[in-house]
Design a protein around this nucleic acid. Structure first.
Length: 297
DNA sequence: CGCCAGGGCACCG
DNA sequence: CGGTGCCATGGC
């Protein structure tokens, strides 16, 4: 990977194991909009980014060197060697190969803790387009305007302080439904420092999940997603309906198993890279509708 | 129209 | 503890 700063733009050359579209659309992140093929607007860390990919080059428009080095390089996980991750995962597992090869350009984004926490509380029992809609609405109502592209305005996800301005009814106005008190509870936990990001990052994934699950509305699946996507625990293996389907289909001969059984199999089988395996499998299984009863393909 | 969605909780035995 | 119904809202 080589980085060029040209005028107001940053251009990354010789990208490996990275596809912008796959990385945005794979279901880990909800704060972005597709502008065109391989072209996206997104928001993270209080900044707005307009990015486009062509072959092994990515253009970050109107981005300074400092911003790239401080935010986007880390956000896209560009410092990590995904070749090593893939060979580790595929070394003794042929069942994973097709998922990794089809979803070859997925990287696990390093997202902000608070936004990840609230976003995945929202995600329960919802489809991705609607989660995106709610995240955009909360950002619009409580966050700061950051910029616009393709006629779409982007607002930063509110800080814990900003979101504390919303009471439960106001959160319901954002179409969060029965999750409104959950979000309210989570905001209180963060603002009252009942949970602290700094501590969650260093206490280990088991303790981290346990603390997150003290929040009403955060169960095992959401706690795993927050640990993986928002706190850097790459060994976390969240099990949702899709992972359940594809794991049962690939590793359990189609037999029914509990989420807990599937998670402990994933943790043991994929080890320190469980989160990556999970994401390849999730995106692949969902795209191919693997394990779904009324298959359309 | 009915079903299900990147679930979790309360309540039941 | 393992199973079941319910929770708001929208996409298909």
């Amino acid at each position: 990977m080589d980085v060029e700063y040209k005028g107001k733009d940053t251009i990354i050359h010789n990208l490996k194991d990275f596809d912008l579209g796959q990385t945005m659309e794979c279901g880990q992140c909800f704060h972005f909009q597709k502008i065109d093929d391989d072209e996206y607007g997104m928001s993270a860390y209080g900044k707005f980014l307009h990015a486009a990919q062509k072959d092994d080059k990515m253009y970050l428009f109107d981005t300074t060197k400092e911003e790239f080095e401080k935010i986007w390089c880390h956000y896209f996980d560009l410092d990590r060697d995904y070749g090593e991750i893939k060979s580790f995962l595929l070394k003794e597992d042929e069942k994973l190969r097709e998922a990794v090869e089809k979803m070859w350009g997925v990287r696990i984004l390093n997202q902000e803790f608070f936004e990840t926490l609230i976003s995945f509380i929202i995600s329960q029992n919802k489809q991705i387009p609607h989660i995106k809609q709610i995240v955009a609405r909360i950002s619009h109502d409580y966050g700061k305007y950051q910029g616009s592209v393709g006629g779409i305005d982007f607002y930063g996800f509110p800080t814990p302080q900003q979101l504390s301005q919303a009471d439960i009814d106001a959160l319901r106005e954002c179409k969060t439904g029965f999750r409104a008190p959950y979000i309210y509870n989570a905001v209180e936990f963060v603002n009252n420092e009942i949970i602290k990001e700094e501590n969650l990052r260093k206490c280990g994934v088991d303790e981290c999940r346990e603390q997150l699950m003290k929040i009403k509305g955060v169960g095992m699946k959401v706690a795993n997603c927050v640990s993986l996507f928002g706190l850097g625990y790459r060994e976390a293996f969240p099990v949702d309906v899709w992972i359940k389907r594809i794991m049962q289909s690939l590793y359990f001969d189609g037999e029914e198993h509990s989420n807990a059984e599937i998670e402990s199999y994933g943790v043991e089988h994929f080890g320190k890279y469980g989160g990556y395996a999970q994401q390849y499998l999730f995106y692949y299984g969902k795209s191919e509708k693997i394990g779904l009863k009324n298959k359309t393909n």
